[in-house]
Simulated assay, not measured.
Amino acid sequence: MWRYQLTIKANQAGRTVKEQLMAWNLPQRLRGGLRIARGIRINGILASTAQILQVGDKLTLDFPADIFRNPAGNAYPGNDSCQLDILYENDSLVLVDKPAGMKMHPHSPTERDTLFNYLAAQFKRDNHRSAGQAARPYMIHRLDRATSGLVLVAKNPVVVPILNAQLRDKIIRRRYLAWVSGKMPADAGLIDQGIGIDPDDDRLRKINGIKAQSAQTQWTLLEEAGDASLLELELETGRMHQIRVHLAAKGHPIIGDDWYGGQPAERLMLHSYSIDLPLPFSDDEEFHYTCPPRSDFKAK
């Protein structure tokens, strides 16, 4: 069981329990599961979803394991050989600084040198908690192995559908930094080109490739250094390799991108820089965090 204990604020008073759960973007499946399991209490007393909330009420939500499709996540086997930088943590989630070159998650049971293996061990070793239980890492989004920077990870299954819906509905906004070759033709722009599978190599993506989907990338010029440009980028869609493919197609491949024609460098110069999101159960109060790149992120 995962338990959330929340105090009702003035702007939440007057809502029914159901209305407040909906305001927190809790999906119908979990709302129904709470109701059936009699998992809702107000000031310690069993309550229905129709009950009206008052300022200062103590709302307790007990989520039984059987209402989740995958309550244990992928149960990543821990690997204690790497200490990750946890930049921010609350009861529901962590923001982690992923180094360039680190894989996000294992693709086989024997693979253990990934961010989620390291994080699983770190949670256990340092006794991280979440909603009344031992925390486990749950994947919300991915970064390419070669990309560095902010990764959002859930600590319990309750918040996974909440965060997934926020990503789907573009409520969560992520921005990237990239050093690219050449001088940009303007101070800002939008790249709007469909991306699909490269017919010659299904590991890669290509403009208007197989099963192409629409893709839009906003870019802003921040700095120039010789024949290189530093860009801030924001995705309107989330296609595989989207930033890399879009910039290469415009003749400005990311430096260090040996898959899409970038000039050689010690690493891919792409960094997940900032995130904006309403924290789960915060009633849409926006949270902003930035992760400056490490010293190896520079154009030569």
Rank of each mutant, 00 (worst) to 15 (best):
L34K: 00
I8S: 01
L221Q: 12
S130V: 10
N90Y: 15
D169S: 11
E285S: 08
D126E: 15
G194F: 06
L119I: 11
G101H: 05
M104W: 03
I275P: 00
H288I: 03
A65L: 14
D144M: 06
A215C: 13
K9I: 12
S214W: 02
S108A: 12
N117L: 01
D169G: 04
Q20E: 12
D144R: 13
E266V: 01
G56M: 13
A265E: 02
L152Y: 14
G182Y: 15
V17T: 10
P185Y: 08
E266A: 10
D57P: 13
L268H: 05
N43Q: 07
L6R: 09
F297K: 06
S108R: 11
Q213V: 13
R112P: 00
D227A: 15
D91P: 00
G132S: 13
R38E: 12
Y76I: 02
L231E: 01
I210V: 15
Q5G: 00
T49H: 08
G251P: 03
M240G: 00
G44Q: 06
H128S: 08
Y4R: 09
H288N: 04
D227V: 14
P161T: 09
E234Q: 14
N117C: 02
D91T: 09
L233P: 05
I42N: 10
R29I: 15
A212F: 07
R136E: 11
K98F: 00
A135G: 00
I197T: 15
D276H: 02
S81D: 02
A50T: 13
L84N: 02
T114F: 02
R29V: 15
N11G: 04
F116N: 02
T237H: 05
M139F: 07
P106Q: 03
S81T: 06
Q51I: 02
L53D: 11
E111R: 09
A10V: 15
I36P: 01
I40T: 01
V153T: 11
A188P: 04
L46H: 09
T217V: 07
T217N: 03
N156I: 05
P264N: 12
L177P: 03
N117I: 01
Y176L: 06
L167K: 12
R69S: 11
K58W: 04
C291D: 04
D276R: 10
P185H: 04
D126R: 14
A100I: 01
V245G: 12
N164P: 02
Q242F: 10
M102Y: 03
D202M: 11
I52G: 01
D85G: 11
A13T: 12
D283I: 02
Y176R: 09
Y4D: 03
F116C: 07
I255G: 06
K155A: 09
G32I: 12
Q83G: 04
P278D: 03
G78H: 07
T147N: 11
T147W: 06
P199G: 15
S214K: 09
R203A: 09
